[in-house]
Design a protein around this nucleic acid. Structure first.
Lengths: 143, 143
DNA sequence: TCACGGTCGTTAGCCTAACTAATAAGCTAG
DNA sequence: CTAGCTTATTAGTTAGGCTAACGACCGTGA
């Protein structure tokens, strides 16, 4: 591995690597027509269990009106379900439907296929390094 | 660090980490108004020296009409320059102008600021891990 | 108790960025 | 020299983001 570099240079290197990999992964968008944004929102919702639109917007780092549109499309396809909030009449509770969960599993598999294949070709040491890095990056990205 | 995980699971973890970090970095769009797309195209062009619109579209993994629009905006701001192809009358040669190069340097600095700050807060060991990971990811992303 | 300020979700309107289809211009091989 | 390919552009559509504005609803303080 190359010499230890200053944070600014590492930032450039990391950003470049991540941008490229991200494009790469996005290109392998599979059959069916959930866009990346929709898939991401649906995933967040599934992970959280149930969220209000506002909460989902916050986790997706998007403004509420944007989330309104995204949710509308997901609802159109029967992937998420709205129910009224039990005590607060303003709020709405969003949750994934069974259809949504099934779709999610299917897409996740297809989406991961390319990257997983690539990773399988690496040495176990390289994979360990990436696993550690992923955990660090999660922390860094978290606000 | 967690137990060693199979490639498919690592792929999910990595993809998630990278998606989040990418959004984060994109949010720190600096002063002046070059969009991410425009910045990316300008960068590719600068790295390659000179390209035709088709070649630039290919490197950006975008369809030619999309690149037409991007280039039009960059040209409007005097950041890239078109010159006719010496032998093929259909083609056009694109290159960055001095203004474009200056803008590029400035934006790159601003773009890195947030991430570099974040990285500076990590331990040297964590930074080493990220550096190694970035190098591995470059390889993985390279077709 | 009720009026008023704040919150939640949505609508409307705008912009960027991507796509496909169609077209004009130019090249090249038979 | 013409028929067919390639290059770039134009036109039109869709997704996805934003801000501004609004109606419905909550909760608190006079």
């Amino acid at each position: 591995m190359a010499k230890r570099m200053p944070p600014a240079q590492l930032a450039t290197l990391l950003r470049d690597a991540i941008t490229r990999l991200n494009r790469r992964v996005r290109q392998t968008r599979p059959v069916g027509d959930l866009t990346g944004t929709q898939l991401s929102a649906l995933t967040s919702l599934e992970l959280a269990g149930a969220l209000t639109p506002r909460e989902l917007a916050d986790t997706e780092r998007v403004q509420p009106p944007t989330m309104t549109k995204i949710v509308a499309k997901l609802e159109e396809r029967g992937l998420v379900q709205r129910t009224p909030h039990p005590t607060d009449g303003r709020q709405v509770i969003l949750a994934t439907t069974d259809t949504g969960r099934a779709m999610l599993a299917q897409f996740d598999r297809a989406r991961n296929e390319w990257l997983a294949g690539r990773l399988a070709e690496l040495t176990p040491e390289d994979r360990d390094a990436l696993q550690r890095a992923a955990e660090i990056l999660q922390k860094v990205a978290r606000d």
